[in-house]
């Protein structure tokens, strides 16, 4: 969900950006990261742990912890919390360690 009224901040959202999460079309805004756009759309499970396959979400949101790794435009292990959202991005839940090349 987006914050609409805030006592101190005014959120000027940029243009709408269309992207795909596991094939489903989602709308975010210019200025979003992949993770913020997903969260706003109600997606909190971003991946699964490598060995026990437990659900994973973001933790630090500033690029430190790697809890938010996903496959973006075919590239695995992308820290989605600091990756700016771009038009027509494909974002996928990553199973396992991901392909390196």
């Amino acid at each position: 969900m987006r914050i609409e009224n805030h006592p101190i901040l005014e959120f000027k959202r940029g243009n709408e950006i269309k992207f795909y999460f596991d094939g489903e079309e989602i709308i975010g805004y210019e200025g979003d990261t992949v993770a913020s756009a997903l969260h706003a759309a109600g997606v909190r499970v971003l991946g699964e742990s490598v060995f026990k396959h437990r659900p994973r979400g973001f933790y630090c949101a500033i690029g430190n912890c790697s809890s938010c790794l996903m496959t973006v435009n075919g590239e695995s292990n992308v820290r989605t919390c600091i990756t700016p959202l771009k038009e027509k991005m494909t974002v996928e839940i990553q199973k396992g360690k991901g392909e390196i090349l």
Partner: peptide, 13 residues
């Protein structure tokens, strides 16, 4: 801090 980033930088609840 992560929650703060999400709400104050990106405007997401």
């Amino acid at each position: 801090g992560a929650v703060q980033t999400l709400m104050n930088v990106y405007g997401v609840k």
